[in-house]
Structure formats: C-alpha cells, structure tokens
C-alpha cells in the first residue's frame, strides 16, 4: 500500500535521516521525499513510501515515536488514516507532589505531552499546570478519559480546551 506521511521536523542536520531509517528498516520502499522550510527552525516534510500492511506501518510509527518524532498526518492510498491534533489541559492541585513524571507517563501512553508550563504560588498551595498534548484524533475520547482518570485519582481539577 502507498503511504503519504507528513511530518513537522526541527531543521537540524540528521533529522530527515532519523525519519527515513525506521521506514526502510521496517520494509518501506521510499518513493519520494519533499521538504519545505516555512521559516523559523521547523521544516515540513512529505514522504511517500510503499509498505506491506498496517502492522508494518504501526512498527514505523512506533519507531518514530521512540525517537520523539510524530507524523502530523498519514494518508493511505489517498485516504486519511491518521491526523495529529493538539489540546491543552490545565491541572489544578498538588500536581508536583503527586509525581508529575508519573502523570506525564500516563498521558504519553495515549498521546504525547509536548509542552508544559507550571505556576506554583508556594509549596503548600495548589499549583496550576498547563500541558499541551498531541494525539491521534481517533484517540480523543481515550485521551480525555485518561485525563479524567488521572485527575479523579490525584484529586486535580481538570480544565480542558474547548474544541
């Protein structure tokens, strides 16, 4: 099957190679690579490759994820297969004291925490933490449920962005 993958990469030497290697190593046959610099330190890359089946494509996606690379969109045979969305979540409570690393790891099981901003008035008071989370739009409900579970368990107030 023919796969078109769009990625938003940091414009540094070697970043394109880090994307191409997993595709080749999981049996993908690269047909074309196009990239355009849109200003700043980012570069938009479109890769078209041929690969055996969905399982092999998932192996490519997982390898990219391990390298902290996320495709922003994947089309298979011209039809949308995956589209990355981004959402903001604010947690209010004792977010630092209740193992922030664990909170992020749980979210990363479903999406990817790409940015974090913390306000801690003083150690005894509740902190407010804003998380930007990237996710596959098909997993939106899963992500929201995951956030609700974490917040119920750790007694945080959850404030999520309106779509």
């Amino acid at each position: 099957m023919i796969v078109q993958m769009q990625l938003d990469l940091k414009d540094v030497p070697g970043s394109l190679l880090r994307v191409l290697e997993p595709i080749s190593s999981h049996g993908g046959n690269i047909l074309s690579v196009m990239h355009s610099r849109g200003g700043g330190d980012r570069v938009l890359v479109h890769i078209v490759f041929k690969i055996g089946d969905l399982e092999m494509l998932d192996l490519v996606k997982n390898s990219l994820k391990q390298r902290n690379i996320r495709a922003t969109r994947i089309n298979i045979e011209g039809r949308k297969y995956y589209s990355k969305k981004s959402a903001s979540f604010m947690l209010v409570g004792h977010v630092i004291d209740t193992d922030l690393r664990d909170t992020i790891d749980r979210i990363n099981d479903v999406g990817l925490v790409s940015d974090i901003d913390v306000v801690m008035p003083n150690p005894k008071e509740k902190s407010s933490v804003l998380l930007e989370v990237e996710f596959d739009e098909r997993k939106k409900k899963q992500l929201v449920d995951c956030m609700k579970r974490i917040c119920d368990r750790k007694k945080f107030l959850l404030i999520r962005s309106l779509d």
Binding site: S88, M90, V92, G93, D117, V119, P121, E125, K126, S127, S128, L130, L157, I159, S161
Partner: peptide, 18 residues
C-alpha cells in the same frame, strides 16, 4: 470554586481564558 488566581493568570499567559 477550585480555580485559583494563578490558574486564570496561566491561561492568560497562553492567550486564553477560562
């Protein structure tokens, strides 16, 4: 009632409101 002044400020820093 659990929304703090800091929560609102953090939203504003990111060009948002609650």
């Amino acid at each position: 009632r659990d929304i703090t002044y800091e929560t609102v400020e953090l939203a504003r820093k990111h060009n948002s409101v609650i």
